[in-house]
Structures are given as C-alpha cells and as structure tokens.
Design a protein around this nucleic acid. Sequence first.
RNA 1: GCGGGCGUGGCGAAACGGUAGACGCAGCGGACUCAAAAUCCGCCGUAGCAAUACGUGUCGGUUCGAGUCCGACCGCCCGCACCA
Length: 870
Amino acid sequence: MATERYNPKAAEPRWQAVWDENKLFETRNDAPGEKYYVLEMFPYPSGRIHMGHVRNYAMGDVVARFKRARGHNVLHPMGWDAFGMPAENAAMQNKVHPREWTYANIATMRAQLKSMGLSLDWSREFATCDVDYYHRQQMLFLDLLEKGLAYRRKSKVNWDPVDNTVLANEQVIDGRGWRSGAPVEQRELTQWFFTITEFAEDLLSALDHLPEWPEKVRLMQRNWIGRSEGLLVRWRLDAANKPADIDEVEVFTTRPDTLFGASFVAVAPDHPLSKAAAAGNPKLAAFVEEARRGGTSAAEIETAEKKGFDTGLRAVHPLDPNWTVPVYVANFVLMDYGTGAIFGCPAHDQRDLDFARKYALPVVPVVLPEGADAATFDVGTEAFTGEGTLFHSRFLDGLTPDEGFDAVAKRLEDTDLSGRPQAKRQVNFRLRDWGVSRQRYWGCPIPVLHCEACGVVPEARENLPVRLPDDIDFEKPGNPLDRHPTWRQATCPQCGGPALRETDTMDTFVDSSWYFARFTSPHAAGPTDPQIANAWLPVNQYIGGIEHAILHLLYSRFFTRAMRATGHLDLDEPFKGLFTQGMVVHETYRDGSEWVVPADVSITEADGARTATRLSTGGQIAIGSIEKMSKSKKNVVDPDDIIASYGADTARWFMLSDSPPDRDVIWTEAGVEGAHRFVQRLWRVVSEAAPHLAGAAEAPSDDPAATALRKAAHRAAAGVTDDIERLAFNKAVARLYELVNALAGPFASLDTAAPEARAAAREAATILVRLVAPMMPHLAEECWQALGETGLCAAAPWPVAEPALLRDDEVTLPVQINGKKRGDLTVPAGADKAAIEAEALALDFVQAALGGQAPKRVVVVPGRIINVVV
RNA sequence: GCGGGCGUGGCGAAACGGUAGACGCAGCGGACUCAAAAUCCGCCGUAGCAAUACGUGUCGGUUCGAGUCCGACCGCCCGCACCA
C-alpha cells in the first residue's frame, strides 16, 4: 500500500502551532521535576541565522527535549546579544537607526529560529539592548562600583583606529582588532575597569573543578590567566651616581636561583627610573622616547628588535654588596607586568642571552646540566633552561634550582638592610583587569556623572535607567554621545550642581556575562531574583563555539563571582557542563577571481572526477578547498532555503549525523538529500505499518519474531539514551538508522502477523518515534499521530529499556588461534570459562591447528573472545 | 619556540586492550517502469578465480591479543607567545 510522501512544509508549521498553543515549552520555575538548564550561546542579531546557528541550536534542542522527556523541569531560553558595532556601521552606511536595524534583525531571526521547531521558552526572551535589560546592568555596575569591583584609572589602551574604540587585551588578535582587523595602536586614556585580577587565583584553581568542561578550554584559560610564582627582589642603586630621589629598583623574578648568574638589570621605558635617568641624558631620553613610541601597533612590538640603553647607573647585587651590575633601559621590558624591571641571567634565559651578546655583557652559567663538566660547560647561542645542579653560586652550589629558589628566598626574606626584608615571595598573573569602557553609542551607558565639585559620582539609583538618546547622528567618526547637544547635561546627585554624563558605554562582553542569570527571572525588578537564580544555576549544559573559550567564558566566570559578592547570586561557576561544537564548513567555488555561492553551482561526477558548473552562466568553474562558511568566500548555504525545500527536521538530522559534534561538519547537498531520504523512509515505514498496529494485542508475545523486534527497539533505546547523555549525536543517529533497518522488513509483512507480534511491532514503533523525537520533532509528532497515540510526542515520556531484553540467551564468541580469528563458537550466555574452553578445544579447526599437541595457553574472556595459543 | 589535539576505505566516520571499517555518502549490479524519478534487493579496504595473505601515518616495544597502551619519528590542525 502506497502512502503519501511526508510533507514537512505543511506538517512543521502545524506542529509548531500546536506546541505553542499548549505552551509546551514555557517553563515554570516551580514546576515539578529536577531542574535542568540547557543553554546555547545566544546569537548576535546580524541579520539572518546561519548554519552554525542551526547546528548549535539543533544540538541544544536535542538535549532539552531529551531531558524534558526524562521528566526534568527544563529551562531552555533564547535571547539576543544585541548591542555592538555592526548596528552602528549599518547606521552609518544605510542611515538607519541602530535600534531599528537591530530589532528588525531580531524579528527576522526569531522567525527563522521558530521555523526550526526549537523547544524554546520564548516567554523569557529579551535583547541586551532592551532598556529593561541594560537598566539592570546599570544596577549591577553601581553595585560593583560600591564594592570596589569597578574602578577608573588612566591606562595605556589598545586603540582600534578603524572602529574608533578601545579594545580589551582579549580582543586583540595578532596585534589587530578582533572585529575591524586593523592594527591596534597604544593610547593613554582614562578608562573604567573591572577587577578581574582580584579573582585570578580563584578563576585559575576553580578550573580544576570543572570536569564537564573540555580540557582544551580549561588549558586555554589557564594559560591566559598565566600564574607564575616568583620573588620580588630589591636592588640598591650604587650610591656613586644614583638619581637623587630613587634609592633602589625592585625586580620580579621566577628564577632567583640564578641570581649568581646575573649580569644586568633592565627597566621598562615607562619605569620611573628610566625617566629619572633620562633627565640629565638627552641620548637616553631620546631612546626612552623612541622605545615608548616605537611601534604603536602590537604587531610591531612583537617583531621589534630587542634594544637596550645603558643608563650608567649600577645596581648592587642583593647577595653581595661588593658586586654591581649595569642598569639598562630595555624596550622589551613591560611596565605593566611584575614591577617593570628585571634582572638578566643570560646563561639561562634566551632573551637575556641575546641581549648580553649584543651588549657584550658577561654570560656566567650557574645551572649545570646533568652529565656536563663544570670546568668546561658553557652556553653558546642557546640558553640552558632545563633542570640541573647549581654551581658558580656560592652557598647554593649543589642544590637543584627549586632548592636554590627556596634558599635565596629564605636568605633575602631574612636579610634586613634598611628595616625591610630585601625580598618577598610573590605570585604574578598575566591576566590584566578588564577594561570595559567603549567610546561607542550602541552599548549600555555607564551610569556615572562627572561633577566639577564632587568628581566622579555614581548616578542615583532612582534615576536609573540612564537611557540612550534616540536623536543621534553618525555623520562624523567618534562617539555620538560625546557630541550630543543635551544628553550629557545632568545634575549631580551629591551636590545638586551641574554635572556631565559619562559617555563611555560598556563593552558588549559585559552584556553576555550575566544574561544566563537574567533568563531565570527575566522580569525581576533587580538584576536577578537570587532565590530563583540560585535554584536554576549553574547552567547544566552550555553549548557554543570554541571561539569563546577565553573571552566570554572567562568574563562570565568572573561576573558570576562579582554577582556573588554583590548578593545577586550564590555560586561561583555559571556553567557546569560546557560543550564546544565544531564549525559548519563547505566547499568553495571560484569563477576566475570571483567566489560563487553553492546555490549557483551544480556538481556532476564522472569516473571519480567532480566538475562544477555555474548555473547562471553555464560555464565550468573551479572547485576550491573546504572552509568555514563565510560571506567573503560565499560558501554559505541559507538555512531558510534548506528548510523551505527539505524541512527543518532534515536540516537538524543532517547537522547531527555524520560528524562528531565537536568536529567540523562538511555541508554537502548529497548529505542533505541522504538525510531527507531517511525522513521519508521513516515516515513510510511507520505510516505503512500503522494500520496493522491498530488491532494489536495488549501484550507482546514471547515468540522469537516478536522478541527480536522488542530486543532491537529496547537496545536502541538503551544505546540512544546513552549517546545523547554523552552528546554523541552522530552515534545516536547511526543507531536509529540501524533500528529502522531492522524494523523495515518485519513491518512490511505485518498484514499476516499474529496479534501478539503486532503488539511487539507497535511497541517498537512507539519506541522508535520517541527516540527520534529530540532530533526530528515534527516528523515524530506526525508518526505519533499516525500510530494513533494520544497526546503529543513532545510531551511523551522517554522510553525505558527493559534490562531483560538487553541480555542474550546465547553469545557468539570469536575463536582465535594465536590472536587471529579462525572461527566462531556459540555458547549459552552464562557458560563458565571451563565449559567454553572445552567446547572451543573440540572445534575442528582448533583441533587441526593443535595437531594433537596440547595448547600452550587458552585465553577465555566470557562474553568477549577465545584465544588458543599453540 | 611552548602547549594541546588529530592521522582508520573514494569520502564523513564507528570500534570497554578482544571479530577493524557499525552507520551514512558516493559508486557498482539487479528488480519494478515504455522510460525516468522514487522505492526495493544485493555488492562495496587491497591483492587473488579461490583458499588465503596483507591492511588503522612510520619504526620499535609491552601483551595470549594493539587502531586503542608505552617510546622515537613524520605529517596536519588549533591555541598561546617579549610575561621576567
């Protein structure tokens, strides 16, 4: 009997409407069931969704639907990371207000997401540019300010000359702005900062307690935080020619054990000592000036030649008052790491060695590699940084570097030259405070005022929100808030006098650092309802791209701690489980120098060679490498097109099949068609069987055919459950193909089957449909209905496998001779080793291999294998 | 340079130390059809008619047994990189 083909175009909107009407995915905070919070990184409303979104949200939706079916109270919200530069760029290019542009994009993208049939709670939706949201963010800012977690200081900043704004260190990639790609310059500005460094130690050590995070991400964060243990050591300046008001220079070192190999001290160009020394030395002043300016771009700094200038000053060795070393100003010493001063031990640090060779400074090895001869050991052009034994080091001789570290620390901590210890242990971090000031319009205004009388004053809470003005112009570069005629004018909440508003807005990474908390009570008067937020958080499963491994995830971890400090949350870690999915990649096509979109390309295959024809011209074009879908290479496939021609279920299924979710998936037309074939096949198998299942008996019988069906279904249930639990969607997909393959034959002959066999078939069909439902929810509803099941499949409980059906009565074991498989042996499931061994040894081919001899050894692993060693 | 990951058919990939290649894509053969599409059945690592042999980047090791564990090397991908 032929059935109608499944028509997703009709079915998908219909089921989406039914779910909506039933408010199936609206989550009540007090609903029964263990809470489970699934979250995918919310999108930036750039205009349209792309395949990366489809993959991300398909995965999250599988988890959400699965957990819901398992009886959890699932929170699965969606919102918009809506502030940011592209809206301003659009405003400049198209004369459209950023707000209009943003909300129009949101409307488009919301409709696209809805067409995917995601089980989202849209009642909790918000955009970070909603006044409601940034109002709460301003409250948070004032709380942070009050607690000393936000502060203002003058600092060198990364200035993006194209976007005309400041960038955080994290936003500078290879010396270029992460968004504009322009070489970043260094400028000095007064900026707002969050004290992320206060939490450095905790942010680092807590990584050890995030077992459900990818090791890769934890490692990247560890490196970013960059903890190093060292010693602060004060070097007195030789009294002979020191500057009047500076007596000493403090250096930070992680290798105090190599102090006896010291041959110079170097300070940063910005160091007070540089300035003092340059005062009476025009040449030095010129060097300092050049070094400070020298290469404003970070890229230049990295490749810049390492240069120094001898100040003529001498520093006294902390362990020998009669030993002095020259003090240099060096362009590679950074003022904002450690103390801005180092001592150089050329033998055991490559950079110091290069420097010493260049300026003819002594190179004295003090760590002897194992096996080397103390009398002859010398470093050539390569510094020795390995383990060994200290020598040429007086009281440290014979110690290991670690022991030497401790010995020096002890000696200098105790030494008391001027009423203070000469050194102290210190832990330094590479992590810097998070600069959040942005000189942009389309962001959350920083709610402070500048009063001539009172200085920087927080806006009064009753005056919040500080709203963005609507009437702005983007005719000129720079920050439109700065030149707004009236917006800046305000009243000082302290003295009542006139004050000017801060015109910096917050980095958009602030917006995304707490949105997951806001979702738990999106209408709360404060930033969160702490009780509700604490009940939902941490997010059980967070899913997004690896590109956020440092920025967004580190900021969110900090913000969660900051929100704890300000009483809005009571936890440290926002995301218990993190999954970073791979990208969607596609072949590229090129017509001469022009990239061609896949929709304009037809691929033909003959004799293993593939040729591409451009549809619009009929000409043959080149097939290029497989790359991340991007507008620049035009290798993008629009999700709308796919959904229109195949349906959302096909797109979802394809995204989940084939590639493991953490790896890149290659989007191919053939793959999508394969996925769609399965959609139709599943529909055919179920819908053609359905009429025969209506009259099924209540209980399945235990005849072999019925049991085989039941076993197949229950095994798949156990396997798919396990796979989804581990986010191995590709394996779950494979298992479902297997199940359908196993059911198709028996289902085709149901018209002659006994009622009991039909009962087994019915059970298998309902299990199959429910297993498929998280991935292809519309098709599942359609099948569910065809099977005559009541209620919605999306509300049906997850199938539970019966353990009895997962066991076999008999097992077939491979029999190996000397580790090579030579045959099989079928034994009862519970057979003991001795019985199996006896049976195996009686096999013809085993006897033949033995040739009358006794086996050297027989390995029997019940349920696994038999290996006869002859 | 440092750190991490990965190398398995034509392709995407499976495989608690236990039958390598499940499942899908592509391909090949057949059925149905006037024909095509769709669908169904079968084949599909290499060599060989076959029995069989050889096969998980290379070389070595551990083991009754290695894609999996250990060592060395080769290649690719990703992250970080004046951090004292």
